[in-house]
Each structure stands twice: as C-alpha cells, then as structure tokens.
Design a protein around this nucleic acid. Sequence first.
DNA 1: GAGATAGTGAACGGCGCGTCTCGTATACCA
DNA 2: TGGTATACGAGACGCGCCGTTCACTATCTC
Lengths: 208, 208
Amino acid sequence: MNASFTIEGNLVTESTAGRRRGDDLERAIFEAALAELAEVGYANLRMEAVAARAKAGKASLYKRWPDRARLIQAAARYKATEVDTEFEPSGDLRGDLRKVMRYIAEYQGTPFGEAIRGWIGELRADERDAEVEDLRARIETPRIRVFAKIYEDGIARGTVRPEALRPRVVNLAPTLLTHYFLTRGAPADDAVIEEFLDQIVLPLITAS
Amino acid sequence: MNASFTIEGNLVTESTAGRRRGDDLERAIFEAALAELAEVGYANLRMEAVAARAKAGKASLYKRWPDRARLIQAAARYKATEVDTEFEPSGDLRGDLRKVMRYIAEYQGTPFGEAIRGWIGELRADERDAEVEDLRARIETPRIRVFAKIYEDGIARGTVRPEALRPRVVNLAPTLLTHYFLTRGAPADDAVIEEFLDQIVLPLITAS
DNA sequence: GAGATAGTGAACGGCGCGTCTCGTATACCA
DNA sequence: TGGTATACGAGACGCGCCGTTCACTATCTC
C-alpha cells in the first residue's frame, strides 16, 4: 500500500509504515519505552502503555523480553551505544573534569537515568546475573576511560598525582554524581559539581 | 481470656495476646514488614503478605499508611531510632573509620538496607515531599555526627586536615558505601572498605 | 503466487491493590 | 460492673495490570 522500498537502511519507518518487523520494530519499542520512562518514571511504567505507544502488540514485547526489567535494560543498552563519545583532555584539569561531570549529570536527567534508578530498585544481590553485570560494566567502562585519560594527561604535566589512576579513585567522580542522583532524585547541578571538585576530587588527585 | 494486665508498658504482647491495638499493633506490623523485606526484598513485597504475617487486617495497614512506600518508610524510621549509637573516637584514626564503615555496611545488609534500595527505586524529584526529606536527614545526620567527631579528634591530634570537616568530605565515607551497596546489590566487604580507606578517605583527610 | 514467518488486537485467568462490610474484641465511662 | 464507642480481623469486592493465547493479517521468501 505505502512506499516500501526494499532498501536495507531504513528510511521508510516514519510516517507511512505498514507493519514493522525485526530490528525496525525493536527500535520503535525502545523509543516508546524510553519516552514512557521520561514521562511516568520507572515505577509507573506499564507494559501496555509501551506497547500502545509503539503501536505494537504486547505479545511482541514479551516475545523479546521476559519482563519489564529486561525490556528497560535492553532499551538502556540500546541508547548507551549511541553515547560513548571520545573525549580529548584540553590540559585544563579542572575545566576538563567539570565538563565531563556536567555531561554525566545531564545524562542522568534523561530517561536513561530513570532506567538506572529503576533497575537499582529491583536489584537484589542474589538475583543478579551476567546480563546485569554486563550493563553495569557497559556504563562504567567508558567513564573510567575518560577520567583515566584526563588523569594521565595531568600526570604527564605534573599536575596530578600518579595515585589518581588507582581504580577506586578513577571511579570517584562518577560515584559522587551517581550517589547524589540516586539519593536526591535529581542530578547534581553545577554548584554541587563545583563542591565535589573543590572539596574532594581536586584535593585528592592534585600533586602537592 | 488471656492475661491482659492493664499495664502501660507492654509485656503481654508476645504469646497469648488476643487482639492488639494502637502502638502495640503498629510495632507488630513494622516487624512483619521488615521481616518480609528481608525475605523477598522491596520489589516483591506484598501488602497482603505483611498483613498476614502480622496477623492483621489489610484495613489496619491502609488506615495508617496510604501505600507500600509509606509503610516501609515508617518501618525504616521506627528501626532507625533504635540504632543511633553514640561513638567515642579511640584516637586510632584508621581503626575508628574502619569500625564505623563496617558498621554501616553491616547495617545495609539488614532489611533496613533493603528499604533504602526500595524507596530509591520509587523516587522521582517531582514526587519528593517533607517526609522523604525527613527520613533522608534522619539517616544522614547521625552519620555525619559520628564522622565529624572522628575528624575533629584527628584534627586536635594534628593527624587530620581541618578541611575534613567540610560537608561533602564528612559525607564521603558513607557516600562510598551507599553507592557501592546500591549499584552492586550487596554491602561492601572488608576488602573494599580497606580500599576506600587506602585510596580515597585517608589520602584526602590526613595532614601532610 | 503460495507457504512460512512475524506482528496486531482482543480476550483471558490470575494476582495484588485499595475499599468496604460485618462480626467481634478491647477500651472508656457511667 | 455493665453499656457504649472504637478499633480490629477476616474476607469479599471491583479494578488495573500482568503475561499468555487465539484468530487474523501483513510481510518476507522462494
């Protein structure tokens, strides 16, 4: 009925699509899930609402993921792959840290942040599995890499102590941001980030 | 029917109680809620199960709290008042910090920790109110006091930098523990606590 | 074009929520 | 001590959402 060119790269999906299948449909479900997440939050997210928003049947959801938690996990993962931006240190230690921390905080304000809050709420130590671990690693690893790069740059310039590369230290800045986000309900604003830098991160890592 | 002395201080509650009322019943509900929390976790906690365990009617629960979140909040608060132990620094900075941190980690392994995980999952910035804020303060304040005391002691001895008393710094150790607990699903063990001390807390606060 | 595959929409039983009612135990007061 | 008001226990109720199933239909493959 509608213009369905047999092109692999999907451009048709938008307006006049008939019935979507496979990855095409999957993406639509992810987008719907993330939109719902942003609107109502994880606790109030209904599978029926996601299906309706994606104009899909519930069966199509349950065919792919066993429950809400897995769907959101998958959606988060899908969105996460879009984000891993490369970052080049400018040499301005404080400025670089501030920039990356603001970026993380901003990120937490998106549906993605809401997803993290959600699966933390449902998480019990005895229910964790490889997939959950994988998602956690997928979030942590690129962050570690960015901070490590900044610290390495600083060490080379003599402004940062070599101990800054110890794993717990590299993770410190994201840890502060995530803890704030989880316990306060909203990401840290610029003033709070400044306090983290002044009182904790910079005093700890700068060479005396 | 059973021995119901008209004594205010309740000793009768246990074995042969007939029908409990007021605070007496409330305590029983709290204990039931915390027990359920420990067994099935927040996500799987059912009001019906709490009522059944407390041998109470559901109506008795809903008469007191509007929903699950409030019940668990109240239960956590009830238990929190039992805990605020006073702590006297021994002068052994590292030993004192380790001791308090282990205590907090242990605490997170109880139903109380599960309660925290629960209300974090349901938390959205736009839904927060005075009661939630109050509970958060109720948890944070005694911790801050204990760490502040330890740091003040160290400052007096010259082993700790005065900057350790800045608010974000005083909160740092509990922040690390809570973040670990929330993101990993289980409290930090002794080895992790040792890393926090070695890599972060002590380097930051000790006088050079 | 025909068969295979995958999606839609609706209906279903089940469960837990939050409310309500009824009968009964406990507290308060004459 | 007896009578009344209040609070509670047990369970039924309608509702909303879960996760499954079914009949039907669109899309892909050959």
